[in-house]
């Protein structure tokens, strides 16, 4: 892989994370437990979509093959997607959606704090702008973890179950591969492995306040960086990409 290829891949990882989670949140539209939450989920979805567009546009320019944000979003199949496995997991109930959101918000906050100091001005700029949004996302999801955990017996049970179900998808977030190493050495990217202790502290604090139990690290799955995804991603893409794929000559 050339340096250009690695930058392209790195930007795809960032853009794909935001796009896939934004797409999942769009599924909630009109169906949230309360109107205020419908607006909040849409708001977060819009932020993520905005991030995705900036990263994918940038990725397309770095690649230099004329692919714009839509070409990258609508004309790649499963194996070429680089989003974390966690983010493609189905919404489930509100507890599962919030647990997924919380784990990612806590991670993305730290990741973007680092990226805001990237030697690459454009990347640093996107990260700095997004960090303001993520600060709100993280507060929103942490508040819900606490309310659900320390709310009723039912909500406690549901959120604990959601956390247990998603726990094995989390280690992948902190993996460093050859691309990460090269981008870190470049000053372009961040050391996500080094974020783990800080993430743990933050997450442990919220879980404790929520009277929730941190699951044991018993299982984990990985592979998204090599395009090895869960079966859920294919369906998400089939739905998202339907129109441009069915009418490839059309402009929308």
């Amino acid at each position: 892989m050339t340096d250009k290829d690695m930058r392209f891949d790195y930007l795809l990882r960032l853009g794909d994370n935001s796009l896939i989670l934004g797409q999942r949140l769009a599924e909630w539209c009109g169906h949230a437990p309360m109107l205020e939450e419908d607006l909040a989920l849409t708001n977060i979805g819009l932020d993520l979509l905005g991030q995705a567009r900036m990263f994918l546009s940038y990725a397309g320019e770095v690649e230099g093959k004329g692919r714009d944000e839509d070409r990258l979003a609508y004309f790649r199949d499963t194996k070429d997607w680089r989003n974390l496995l966690l983010l493609e997991q189905p919404n489930g109930d509100f507890a599962k959606t919030m647990a997924r959101q919380f784990f990612f918000d806590a991670f993305q906050y730290l990741q973007f704090e680092g990226l805001a100091k990237s030697s690459d001005d454009r990347l640093a700029g996107i990260a700095a702008k997004s960090l303001k949004e993520i600060t709100y996302h993280r507060r929103h999801s942490a508040d819900w973890i606490i309310r659900l955990g320390d709310g009723t017996d039912e909500s406690h049970e549901r959120i604990q179950g959601a956390i247990d179900d998603l726990w094995g998808y989390l280690p992948e977030m902190f993996d460093m591969d050859a691309v990460d190493d090269a981008m870190l050495a470049d000053g372009f990217g961040v050391d996500v492995a080094a974020l783990r202790p800080v993430w743990d502290d933050y997450v442990n604090g919220v879980l404790a306040e929520a009277t929730l139990i941190r699951p044991a690290d018993s299982w984990s799955v990985r592979g998204s960086r090599e395009g090895k995804h869960s079966e859920h991603l294919g369906y998400l893409l089939a739905e998202m990409q339907f129109l441009p794929r069915a009418y490839p000559d059309a402009k929308w």
Binding site: Q23, A26, L49, A52, R53, D70, A73, E239, L243
Partner: peptide
């Protein structure tokens, strides 16, 4: 979820 471009989706 099926909007045909990211701009239209936004």
């Amino acid at each position: 979820t099926r909007a045909p471009s990211l701009k239209r989706k936004t």
